[in-house]
Design a protein around this nucleic acid. Structure first.
Lengths: 128, 128
DNA sequence: CTTGACCTTCCCATTACTGGAAGGTCTATA
DNA sequence: TATAGACCTTCCAGTAATGGGAAGGTCAAG
């Protein structure tokens, strides 16, 4: 299967798939003309990575998860550890963003309601 | 004032300040020996940017906000618009992250509780 | 006069791609 | 058979916002 078809099946772009080959996530065969030839296994791997990325896993996490996926003797705990670590990162990001949101929401609403000429948003950013 | 002192006053690093000069956010004078010389106004600008960055504003947002800050005739609505747009972005990110969190939390807990050999996390990433 | 803490510029690395140029290949149609 | 256009290839550069580190200049203290 050519790259575009593989891309369609995995919700990736051809560009991205080439990049994934560059960094060693997949290694499709080549046709005589040099075109990449993706088999079922390649497509499954790409789909796996695509879904993991959609859950926010980093490429390196994906690499690890792929290896675990292909490892008959893996321990579930190893997979769980990767996911848990990622989850912790997500929690952190959410908290940080919620803090920003809280501050900004307040400033924006103050700025909206006041008809005065000084802007609460700029004021909060200005040196005290 | 030398760069390190400006950095300390603004919670930035010297590296970051040099970068901000590169991209035109500040333009400190130079001493005869070539060292940057930050005056009060430079430091205020850097502090402004530092605080805006801490609220998640992009560098380009910071550039816009700085310009508005220095514009005597600015309209509050302009500032509010920048902040509101940023706020919308933050909301989006939070929602996306919360979705990821919800999915991952479920998978991790399933993986933790089950003593079976198939891993729910890997299973959810595998091709259907 | 030397040490160590600064300062400078410059270039490379990061993350996960995306865009584009230059050129080769395949297939269908005129 | 010629050609259009839809693919494919590689390679190079750019993104955001820094961080790391090399190579070298400067300054103040002891």
């Amino acid at each position: 299967m050519n790259i575009k078809d593989a891309a369609k099946l995995t919700d990736l772009t051809s560009k991205t798939i080439r990049y994934y080959e560059d960094i060693g996530l997949v290694s499709p065969q080549r046709h005589a003309n040099g075109y990449r030839d993706f088999d079922t296994k390649d497509v499954h791997k790409l789909g796996f990575v695509s879904r993991a990325r959609a859950l926010g896993f980093s490429i390196e996490d994906c690499r690890t998860l792929l290896a675990l996926w292909e490892d008959e003797n893996r321990a579930n705990a190893d997979v769980r550890a990767v996911a848990q670590e990622h989850l912790d990162l997500i929690e952190e990001k959410i908290e940080k963003l919620q803090e920003m949101r809280s501050t900004l929401t307040k400033l924006v609403s103050e700025c909206a309601s006041g008809s005065r000429s000084d802007c609460p948003i700029l004021a909060s950013l200005s040196p005290s």
